[in-house]
Structures are given as structure tokens and as C-alpha cells.
């Protein structure tokens, strides 16, 4: 007879195998989706650039690396130098770190908020649903730029407040989508069966409903990273980017400094153009992957084909 521990190990291995097979199947579907693959490639390139920044362009410019400010492009500085005399190419390569970091973390926070609200609203229904849905709709119509600006301006801009503010404007879409999915999932028979054998609400939510809406959460998470990077760019362009000791300039901040230092009027377009192009590519990459994931994961959309 097999020991109890051995039995559990077998069960675990079997589950892992099934998960792996599901993952393979999912990847197959995903890799057939041209939109998703193109998005994935763009994202991987930018993650590589950000992670390998020290190898590609050397360390982040410090006070000792100052040269003449606002130089036109040269062989030593392919994009010229910024208003402090730092190499623009270096700044732009490192800028991806901030944008991606803020994008990932605020999306994660927004998912936590949005999924919780969506689950609770959809599952409990009645007054709870009424209240939460009202709140969701309310946050959905608020114009996001002034809202984020006012939040960060008042809370003073640090990494944490920026992430918090972006998460606050990003969660409602997710909450709405998750809620409507929960509404259909909770009518399915296995929920009734689970209740019949005595499962509590918390258990059903965690073990039966959450796994069924999780794929949608992933797709939403990717789309939210896209909008979070976008929001951060605007925030930084308005001069409310991450500042303080150890701060790295984001693409939005570089664009802001190029703008306030009249880079374009001086003809230094290589100071201004690259950060914008990179913002566009990253936002586009995550959006394409997100739409691709949605098409693969959401059966309602698949019917359209």
C-alpha cells in the first residue's frame, strides 16, 4: 500500500501534468493569434531592453556624467543630450524600467480591486450588487486625467502614490467584466451541487467561481498594463512623475523636459521623438496581446469568427 504522502505526491504530479497540457493547448491557440504574437514580441523586446539596460548603455547617468546640455546628436550621443547634459539614449533606455514597473504593479493592484468588487457584486447580488455596481459606473465615467492629476498632486508624487492613483482609475472596467461573468457562472449546476454538499459562500467563491473567471482576469490585466503605462506617461508629462532620491526618469518625464526646454523649437527632435515612440510601442504591444488573449479566452468573442 502506498503511503499517504506518496499518494498526495502522485495526485500533485497528475494535476501538474494536466495543468501543463492545458497550458500547451492554450499556447497553441495563442500562437495562432497573430495579434497576440506580435504584441508578445514587442513586450519581450522592451522587457529585454529594460532588464539589460546596464549591458546595453552602461550605468544610469549620475551627476558626474554631465556634459554640455542640449547638444545635437553626435557619435558620442546618438540622440543628443538633455537639459542637464545627460545622454538622451541612456535616459530613454532606462526610462522603460519605470514605465514597465509602474504598469505592472498598478495593473496588479487594479486587478485585485476590480476582481474583488466584481466577484462580490456578481455573487451576492441584491443590495450589495446595486451599491458596488453604482460605484463602478461612477468611477468609470470620471475623466481620468484630471482625477489622476488631482490625486497625485495632493498626495505628493512618490512611486507608491502614482501606482495607487493609476490603480484607482483602472479597476472599474475589470470589475464590470468580472461581474457579468460571475453572473453566468453562478447559475451553472456545479455551484448548486457545491452548495448542496454544504460548501460555504467563501469556499464557493474561491474554489469554484474564481478559477472560472481567472482567464478573463489575465486578459484584463494585460490590457490594464497598457492603459497604466499610458496614464503614467500623461502624469509624468504634467510634471507629476516619480521624483526623489534614486528615481529614474520615465519616458513621460523625458518628454516633459524636452517640451519645457523647447527641444523641438531648437530642432532637437531626437530628444523628443524617441520617448513618445517607445510609449506608443509598449502601449500597443500590451493592447494587442490583451485583445489577442481576450479573443482566445472569451468564448463569446470566438463565435464571431
Amino acid at each position: 500500500m502506498v503511503s499517504r504522502a506518496g499518494q498526495r505526491a502522485t495526485v500533485f504530479r497528475e494535476r501538474l501534468r494536466l495543468d501543463w497540457r492545458r497550458f500547451e493547448k492554450f499556447m497553441q491557440l495563442l500562437l495562432h493569434n497573430k495579434l497576440a504574437v506580435a504584441g508578445l514580441v514587442i513586450i519581450l523586446v522592451f522587457i529585454f531592453i529594460s532588464v539589460a539596460a546596464p549591458l546595453l548603455v552602461g550605468s544610469y547617468p549620475s551627476q558626474f556624467d554631465r556634459t554640455t546640455s542640449l547638444q545635437p546628436p553626435s557619435t558620442a550621443h546618438p540622440f543628443g543630450t538633455d537639459w542637464q547634459g545627460f545622454d538622451v539614449l541612456k535616459l530613454v533606455v532606462y526610462g522603460g524600467r519605470v514605465s514597465l514597473l509602474i504598469g505592472f504593479v498598478s495593473s496588479a493592484v487594479a486587478m485585485l480591486l476590480g476582481t474583488t468588487v466584481g466577484l462580490v457584486a456578481g455573487y451576492y447580488g441584491r443590495v450589495t450588487d446595486q451599491l458596488l455596481s453604482r460605484a463602478t459606473d461612477f468611477f468609470l465615467v470620471i475623466p481620468w486625467l484630471p482625477f489622476v492629476l488631482i490625486l497625485v498632486a495632493i498626495l505628493t508624487s512618490s512611486l507608491a502614490t502614482i501606482i495607487f492613483a493609476i490603480a484607482i482609475v483602472s479597476w472599474p472596467t475589470t470589475a464590470r467584466i468580472i461581474r457579468s461573468q460571475v453572473l453566468t457562472v453562478k447559475e451553472r449546476q456545479f455551484i448548486e451541487r457545491a452548495r448542496a454538499v454544504g460548501s460555504g459562500n467563501g469556499f464557493i467563491l474561491r474554489k469554484h467561481i474564481l478559477p472560472n473567471v481567472m482567464p478573463l482576469v489575465w486578459a484584463e490585466a494585460v490590457l490594464t498594463i497598457s492603459s497604466a503605462v499610458f496614464t503614467e506617461a500623461f502624469l509624468s508629462f504634467f510634471g507629476l512623475g516619480w521624483k526623489g532620491p534614486g528615481a529614474v526618469e520615465s519616458w513621460g518625464q523625458i518628454a516633459n523636459e524636452a517640451y519645457t526646454n523647447l527641444a523641438l523649437l531648437r530642432g532637437l527632435w531626437l530628444y523628443f521623438a524617441p520617448p513618445g515612440i517607445f510609449i506608443t510601442l509598449v502601449v500597443l504591444g500590451f493592447a494587442m496581446l490583451g485583445y489577442g488573449l481576450e479573443e482566445v479566452l472569451n468564448p463569446a468573442l470566438k463565435r464571431r469568427r
Partner: peptide
């Protein structure tokens, strides 16, 4: 979709330029 991904501050300044 590309247009939608571009930050408007960047588009407007590039157009002006």
C-alpha cells in the same frame, strides 16, 4: 489602434514640429 496608443501630447508636438 496605433493612433489610439499614441499619447496626444506627443502627437500634437510632432504635428507642430
Amino acid at each position: 489602434l496605433i493612433g489610439y496608443s499614441m499619447p496626444s501630447f506627443w502627437v500634437s508636438l510632432m504635428l507642430i514640429y
